[in-house]
Design a protein around this nucleic acid. Structure first.
Lengths: 333, 333
DNA sequence: CTGAAAGCGCTTACAG
DNA sequence: CTGAAAGCGCTTACAG
């Protein structure tokens, strides 16, 4: 129960209430083993009765670790980070860390600095940071995903986008597709996937065809991209989108044009998001293994916090092709 | 530039570097007008050269306000909160507030308490809090959206779900639909919408038909719900989903069954999310006016922080029906 | 406008 | 195990 005193209780109040010293209260709070059971119980009872909660500001100022980590993302709308976050928490929760999320909205420059200044022990950067901002990150950092820039000394934990896109293209080639369009976007991952798409097309003796130069990757951008591709190249038999969300837009564009998927047009995405599942688009895609990525990123960050001078490492996770019903052999003309 | 001294600079260092007192540095930091231009410039130069950033822990302990607000959400996957957040920021950014987001993941009990203990000035609750947790919220609070429980003394800013659903049902009735199914979920908003759906059906002399009792509202749940409805009632001419995301699942279920939208089946959602836009589903839906809701919630919270003893208020925003191509008159049998 | 002083609520050694 | 002491880096009066 919260007491109704006008002043928030402190360890002094708890100590007095429990009949012990302030130091002992601090020891109990910090879970020290050198406290007798009865005294511990007395302190805990006092904490309960007074409704005491420690002042994090005072604790931090006195040198306690904040036990806070932050995941830096571009935009909440891009759900890529959700699995990542879950993976990070899987390895940090049991150590008592609180993991928050900061988005790079307008005014983010100061937002990120605020968060760092507020005393987090480390950040997982799952966003495209402007170079100048990346250089200013003054806490332990791990970059998740392929990014154009990264904080100095940060580890990198990413998917091998090149391998993922190559596997996807091999799948389409094996089905017999040759006339394949790509909807892309700006950013580190998109750039690598586009490069891999183009390389695969060239290896197959084909001319790469990509549209889209926007930073945003919403379904509406996929819709516009697909229409652009199909207007200029009605002969396409397959479209590969930068991610599943854009694939949804492409799906809707195909529908509006009266093209069935996969009968008239095969469609593939990337990420294996919930949208790609059998109960939604049933989309062929590439599983970025976000949860595992998060676990690796979390472990790397914890290790880096414990061992700040360790040289930066790069961990590349092989992604996994997920074949579903949205891709099929092209119709014979 | 960040200096490479082993110790983080403090106001003492800044004061010495600038040749002024520590108090003056504090005044400059806090933007006091009672500082001469030349001294201000000297302090600012020193701050720059030393790479000084204030210790928020020390400032908070000494009594400075944290200037931090948090939006409490259920799950990042439900993008309802994104517009809300934007609206909140529209009214709080200029006052220098940092607005973060906390999700109610596993272990959220302590997560929310951690966040509150860390000194936020107020929270916007956009989540279904367990009763016990809601009672523990010990900072200024505003509830956004219709919720089953709410913190004591909190304002409520919500859509009039009843009016929104009623307008949507009137639209379907006017088109000529009589055999209408509803896909619902648990939670405050869902409950109100379902009640309004059922009331509208009864007023029209019809028997209400609802499926779904899950707390989750993903597209896959909409898929399952639509199949359940159509398996039992193939005669349905329209389906209304709890939200746009579930409507997407229903859309995909219809497609898999060979039902065209809106030819064979009219479909409506709720929220006017990006998925409902003309370049994606082109879905008839109800605009929850999330940004405006956020603005109102932000203003209410700021007012409550300035005036903590003000009695709780309720602000109900009228939602807006958005008619798109997914609803049409039923096919004549 | 300035400077010395007190204090916010903790944690960390340190002597008992 | 305990208790008194110092100090973390600020802000807030307060006397100049």
């Amino acid at each position: 129960m919260v007491s109704d005193s006008s002043r928030r209780p402190t360890i002094y109040d708890v100590a007095e209430h429990a009949g012990v010293s302030k130091s002992l209260v601090s020891l109990v709070l910090r879970g020290s083993p050198n406290v007798s059971a009865k005294r511990r119980a007395a302190v805990e009872a006092a904490i309960d009765e007074l409704g005491y909660t420690p002042s994090t500001a005072a604790a931090r100022l006195a040198g306690a670790r904040s036990q806070r980590l932050e995941v830096v993302i571009d935009d909440y709308r891009n759900l890529w980070f959700v699995d990542l976050l879950e993976g990070i928490r899987q390895v940090t929760d049991e150590l008592g860390y609180h993991v928050g999320v900061v988005d790079m909205h307008t005014g983010a420059h100061s937002a990120l600095n605020d968060v760092i200044a507020s005393g987090v022990e480390g950040v997982v950067v799952a966003a495209e940071l402007p170079e100048a901002l990346a250089e200013q990150v003054s806490v332990q950092a791990v970059v998740a995903g392929n990014r154009a820039s990264r904080p100095p000394g940060a580890d990198l934990v990413a998917n091998d986008d090149d391998a993922g896109m190559t596997a996807l293209m091999d799948h389409l080639f094996e089905l017999g597709h040759r006339r394949i369009g790509h909807i892309t976007a700006t950013g580190g991952s998109a750039g690598r996937r586009r490069a891999a798409f183009e390389a695969a097309m060239r290896r197959a003796g084909l001319t790469p065809l990509s549209v889209g130069v926007d930073a945003e990757t919403g379904a509406d951008k996929g819709f516009v991209g697909a229409n652009e591709l199909l207007d200029a190249h009605p002969e396409l038999t397959a479209i590969v989108a930068e991610n599943d969300t854009m694939a949804l837009g492409a799906f809707m564009a195909a529908r509006q044009r009266g093209l069935s998927v996969p009968g008239d047009l095969s469609l593939a995405g990337y990420d294996d998001s919930p949208l790609a599942g059998p109960k939604v688009m049933d989309l062929t895609t590439v599983d970025g293994r976000g949860t595992e990525l998060g676990r690796q990123a979390g472990l790397a960050l914890l290790d880096r916090i414990a061992n700040p001078d360790r040289p930066a490492e790069t961990i590349l996770l092989p992604p996994e092709l997920v074949v579903r019903s949205s891709t099929a052999p092209p119709r014979l003309d």
